Amino acid sequence: MRAERLSPYARLPRAYRDLHVRGSTVDAFGGVHWLLTEHPKPPTPYDAVVVTITDDGSRTTALGPVSARFPRLDSLPDGGFVVADSRSGDDEEQVQVFDALGRPSWTFRVGDGIEHLLTDEAGDLWIGYFDEGVFGDPLSAPGARRWSVTGTPLWEFRPPPGVDHIADCYALNVGRAVTWVYPYTSFPLVEVRGDGPLRARTTGVNGARGVAVHEERVAFLGGYRGDRDLLTLARLTDTSVETTRRAVLTRPDGAPVHRRRRILSRGPRLYVLEEPYVEWFVFDIGVS
C-alpha cells in the first residue's frame, strides 16, 4: 500500500519543554496553541500558560484560575481563549472564557462528554460529544452542537432523513464556510452549511478519527483494529463519498505515527499531534 507522509507544522519552543502539556489545538486561522502547567495533574483551580505559534512568531498568555481537569482548548478571534472540561456534572459550569490578557470573563455549561471542541472564525464553539455524554446528559444528547462564546445554544444536530441519531461523534471538521460531522453508528458524512438543511452522504468508511474535505476531495484518517494509520482518499458525489484509493499515513521520515496521538480536522487539513505532544504535523488534501 502506498504511503503518504505528514509534513511538519509547528513545534513547542524548547524553552517551555519543562512544563507539562495539558492541551493543544490548531485554531480556525492556523495558529497553534499549547496549554501548559508546572505539574502534570495540578489540583484545581490552577494557573496555566498558553504558548501560541503563528506566522508572526510566538507569544505567551498567562491564564488563571483554570478549573478544567480534562481540558479542551481553543482560541478566539479577539485573542482570548476558551478552556472546557470534557467531563462535567449537572451543576458544573465547565466552560471558561478568558480575554486576551488571560482574565476569566464567562463561564457556562455545555454538557458532559466533550470529544471535540473547535471554534470557528466568528468565535462560536462547535462541540462533538462522545457516547457517555450523549446517553447521560440532556445537553449532550444531540451529539454535536454549536454555542456562542457566552453560552447561548445556537444549533444542534437533528438527523436528516435516513440518518440515525448520533451515538458518538467520531470526527468533527470546522472549516471556513462549512462544518462536517462524521458520527457513529452508520458513519455518514454530514454537511452543515449555514442555517440550511443538513446534507448526508454515505461513506463506507468505519471508525475514522479525522476527516478532511476540499472541494470534491475527502480524506479519512483511521479505522478499527489495524487501520489506525489508514488514510482513505475519496470524492464527494451527490449522495455518497466514494473511495478512490487507500494509503498508509506516516511521519515525515516515513516511520509509523505514534499510537498515542491526537487528530484535529479543519477544512482540507488533518493535523496530528504525537506523544509527548510538542509537535504538530499536517496532511493537506488541498495541496496533495
Results as ranks from 00 to 15, higher is better:
258 H>Q: 13
230 L>A: 02
177 A>N: 08
225 R>L: 07
164 D>L: 07
248 V>P: 00
68 A>N: 09
192 V>F: 05
103 R>N: 08
7 S>R: 09
150 T>C: 08
108 F>M: 00
60 T>W: 04
187 F>L: 03
202 T>H: 07
281 F>A: 14
160 P>E: 05
77 P>H: 06
218 V>W: 06
168 D>Y: 02
174 V>C: 15
157 F>W: 04
203 T>Q: 07
59 R>Y: 14
30 G>F: 11
23 G>S: 15
154 L>Q: 05
214 H>D: 10
38 E>A: 14
41 K>A: 06
164 D>Q: 08
273 L>P: 03
259 R>F: 15
5 R>W: 14
134 V>G: 04
4 E>D: 13
74 D>V: 00
176 R>V: 12
59 R>H: 13
20 H>W: 12
163 V>E: 05
126 W>S: 13
135 F>Q: 06
52 T>N: 11
205 V>I: 04
146 R>A: 06
123 G>V: 10
228 R>G: 00
245 R>I: 05
238 D>C: 06
5 R>V: 12
134 V>D: 02
166 I>M: 14
168 D>G: 01
16 Y>K: 10
127 I>S: 09
247 A>K: 02
67 S>T: 09
178 V>K: 04
282 V>Y: 00
285 I>M: 12
41 K>T: 02
162 G>I: 07
62 A>H: 04
132 E>W: 14
252 P>N: 00
180 W>P: 14
165 H>Q: 08
195 D>V: 02
214 H>I: 05
190 V>Q: 03
224 Y>V: 15
94 Q>C: 01
58 S>H: 05
7 S>T: 11
90 D>P: 09
59 R>P: 11
37 T>V: 13
222 G>R: 01
70 F>C: 15
272 V>I: 08
186 S>V: 06
222 G>E: 07
173 N>P: 06
250 T>Y: 10
94 Q>W: 00
4 E>A: 07
139 L>P: 09
260 R>L: 12
34 W>H: 01
1 M>Q: 09
7 S>I: 10
86 S>A: 14
165 H>P: 10
56 D>Y: 09
172 L>Y: 07
232 T>I: 09
86 S>R: 08
220 F>C: 03
231 L>H: 15
31 G>P: 10
279 E>S: 04
24 S>Y: 12
143 G>D: 00
80 G>W: 06
132 E>K: 08
265 S>K: 09
46 Y>I: 00
244 T>K: 03
107 T>A: 09
277 Y>W: 09
249 L>K: 04
230 L>H: 01
148 S>T: 13
146 R>S: 04
25 T>N: 15
25 T>E: 15
94 Q>K: 01
204 G>H: 14
270 L>K: 10
127 I>Q: 11
86 S>M: 10
100 A>G: 06
82 V>S: 13
9 Y>M: 00
21 V>M: 01
163 V>K: 05
124 D>S: 04
2 R>D: 10
82 V>K: 04
82 V>D: 02
126 W>R: 04
222 G>Y: 05
178 V>C: 12
149 V>G: 05
269 R>W: 04
253 D>I: 00
79 G>Y: 03
210 G>F: 01
16 Y>Q: 11
171 A>G: 05
182 Y>T: 00
39 H>F: 06
262 R>Q: 11
3 A>Q: 12
81 F>L: 10
165 H>M: 05
180 W>G: 11
164 D>M: 08
150 T>H: 07
41 K>V: 01
66 V>W: 03
67 S>I: 03
288 S>D: 13
160 P>H: 07
205 V>S: 11
246 R>V: 08
256 P>G: 03
243 T>I: 03
